[in-house]
Write a protein that binds this DNA or RNA. Structure first.
Lengths: 233, 233
DNA sequence: CGCCCTGTTGATACGATTCAAATATCGTGG
DNA sequence: CCACGATATTTGAATCGTATCAACAGGGCG
């Protein structure tokens, strides 16, 4: 439970036109005119690990596209403990609820150094009513978020600890290079998988000892994906 | 695992104008003209418990509004077992993915006698691009589905068996009368909560013995909500 | 009536949690 | 740069809870 003083930085106005991930972001198919209307007020931000991007209950006025890094969305349980309900990474959109004009529903915290673009929700909302490709893209984003949530339930909240850890490693490797991934603290690992910190630590330690996974640097892992998926079947 | 021969029935074309739940369905705020465009092709259907409404992989061409009853959405795990990822009830919309033109992603099965309205996805899609209140309503539906999924993760997939069962009972009572709910098979209960059939059965049986819940008819339960929420904290 | 399916219960084994302690790692100030 | 304290990780031992395998009771249906 660390507290971060100031670890957010504004790094300028986004150069969307030359964005390296433009093909997979919200505005992938916008024409020049509509694009102009939107690209002006987009800021780029960087967050350090542990930095909070927004909190549940904050007024939701912006959505974010993640350019790099990893963000956790947590939700508090009635009893005060918390559970991580989603992890967002490159090309994911965060804070879609801003389109509805209410409050954020999660605490969003960077787990790795994270770059994101901040988009004013009202501009996106306005444009999406005229521009049908943005409209469809938004629909697709809602859908993707929902699919991720379903997968979360089925894969990360079901079965023995070893299987859950394995599935998460495979999931993390999906968008990095195959067979490699970067992890985070055992406490967060537990909060993702619905396990205690000790159990996540034990499970990781044993998988390392058995040679199923190899830790190249602290929290950087390599593994044979075929082999791992067989083990967690 | 039962197989239902024929338990789906067409019960006529919907009389949307006089719909008893119109205020909480997708078209709550449509004006007459737009409403006319849409209401014609809406069919009403009834499904018996155990009947499959659609299957994962089926081409998704319709969405559904649930008028009454209870539907489970299940997802298959890599190892062949399945997990229930959502329960849908009165006023919920099912099959939003039809708006994207792909396939259904779950198996949808009635758990209780269920009435629903079937809406052609293309008509909804077309209309939603012109009509901004429908557009907003759709957005709100995606959002609601996502909130439900998050809650599912946090409440039904976290903590000891007793807490999960308690939270589910409270959840079920939300839209019925307070302090009452109708349940379903222990096998499905386990698939909702990520537990085995035996554990769900044991947990229910013990809560009955302890007087925390009272079974008035088979699978109909009554309980003191204050008391129950304190127990599962 | 007998069969099948669901729910319940029991005994045991396994796995996860809990509490506690030792070790490793990180950041900071001397 | 090293030493120190704070924090995170790992490990251990005991306990608790859930899964597993098995048996049995009750209800519905042919």
């Amino acid at each position: 439970m660390k507290r971060i003083a100031l670890s957010e930085a504004w790094t300028g106005v986004a150069d969307c036109r030359n964005c390296s991930i433009r093909s997979s972001v919200l505005f992938a198919r916008l024409d020049e005119k509509d694009f102009d209307e939107l690209h002006r007020p987009i800021d780029q931000l960087v967050y350090a690990p542990g930095a909070e991007i927004y909190a549940a209950g904050d007024k939701a006025e912006t959505l974010f596209t993640i350019r790099s890094g990893l963000v956790k969305l947590t939700r508090f349980l009635p009893d005060g403990s918390q559970r991580i309900v989603r992890l967002l990474r490159r090309t994911d959109v965060m804070g879609l609820e801003a389109l509805l004009g209410g409050d954020y529903e999660h605490n969003a915290t960077a787990l790795q150094p994270t770059e994101l673009c901040r988009l004013p929700a009202d501009a996106v909302r306005r444009l999406s009513q005229r521009n049908s490709s943005l409209y469809h893209e938004l629909m697709a984003r809602w859908h993707r978020a929902l699919s991720d949530a379903d997968r979360w339930i089925a894969e990360f909240s079901t079965g023995p600890a070893r299987d859950r850890v394995g599935r998460l490693l495979l999931w993390l490797a999906e968008r990095d290079e195959p067979g490699r991934c970067q992890l985070f603290s055992r406490e967060d690992l537990g909060a993702v998988l619905g396990l205690t910190t000790e159990t996540s630590s034990r499970t990781m330690a044993e998988m390392k000892r058995q040679g199923v996974i190899l830790e190249t640097k602290p929290n950087h892992f390599e593994f044979d994906m075929e082999n791992l998926s067989r083990l967690v079947s």
